[in-house]
Design a binder for these strands. Structure first.
Lengths: 162, 162
DNA sequence: CCTGAAATCATACCGAT
DNA sequence: ATCGGTATGATTTCAGG
């Protein structure tokens, strides 16, 4: 068996046009197809076919608006590291899925290593963080310990292969 | 001085229409204005004015395509916690900005607490991670220590105020 | 992968609330 | 001051080559 037994189509070849399209759409997800085509140097019909192919192949997984949490009344961000009790390992996935569904949770990293996962939380204030940790983590029978760190600032880059 | 001395316009009021628009655009950033208006229940002209206002007020900070790192040949994600030497505290910001500009860096969290920042890295393989840590972190005179954890999976939610 | 025509969409303007 | 309807020009999209 070669290395082609993966459930993801890693073999999906991306040519120069695909990569340019991806880069443009990461910078401006609402660019018109006409302008995207011009920047990339192909016809509009070709361009839209490429974009649709990238989406259907799951290279592009979606288009989203980025929102400032502070404008939504969420002025405090924290990272919470969670360690699961050794007797409850088999419940990690279940617990993490519960947590990922909560509205305060911006991101969840499911980890190997000392911690089992890290939650990136957006909260109104310190009380909100405390209530979240107590209610959803400390009180949960599978959780062994948590550690909360304040996020002073946060940068997010587009995915670039080089 | 009241609590209005902030550089962010927290006072930006968001009504029901604004919140619906934000929710739709987080789910589908490429929705047409016509369909967005219909879903939200306002006229197209009203809708486009609201969207432009949200963007100019920096409530919406941008529109981006989400890309699967695996499709870009980046099959391994890790979190690297970095602690800065106590004698080099004043260089934390400089160092973090250098690192945020590197192509492997998807996110950088600038923290208070035991660790000074956490880097979310997308890499081709374990060798790539090792090279990154050695070249950009261990070799840097301001870095005291690093800790690398593999990311098994990663969820990202839209920002929801409730 | 490109051209061109029909359908759809974005947006400025203006009256009404 | 903001909203909703209408007209016009731009854009998308699907044939077909």
């Amino acid at each position: 068996m070669a290395e082609s037994s993966k459930n993801l189509q890693q073999e999906t070849e991306l040519d120069e046009v695909d990569r340019k399209i991806i880069a443009e759409l990461q910078t401006n997800g609402r660019i018109t197809n006409a302008e995207l085509a011009e920047r990339v140097g192909v016809a509009a019909s070709t361009c839209i076919a490429r974009v649709r192919s990238l989406v259907s192949r799951r290279v592009i997984t979606g288009f989203t608006a980025s929102v400032d949490p502070r404008a939504m009344g969420l002025g405090l961000q924290v990272l919470v590291s969670v360690t699961v009790r050794s007797g409850a390992r088999q419940r990690i996935r279940e617990l993490s899925e519960e947590i990922a569904a909560l509205p305060e949770v911006m991101q969840l990293f499911f980890l190997g290593g000392d911690e089992d996962f890290i939650i990136h939380l957006a909260a109104r204030d310190a009380d909100h963080v405390r209530d979240f940790v107590i209610e959803h983590l400390s009180a949960h029978p599978a959780v062994s310990s948590t550690r909360t760190s304040i996020v002073f600032s946060h940068f997010q880059n587009p995915v670039r292969s080089e």
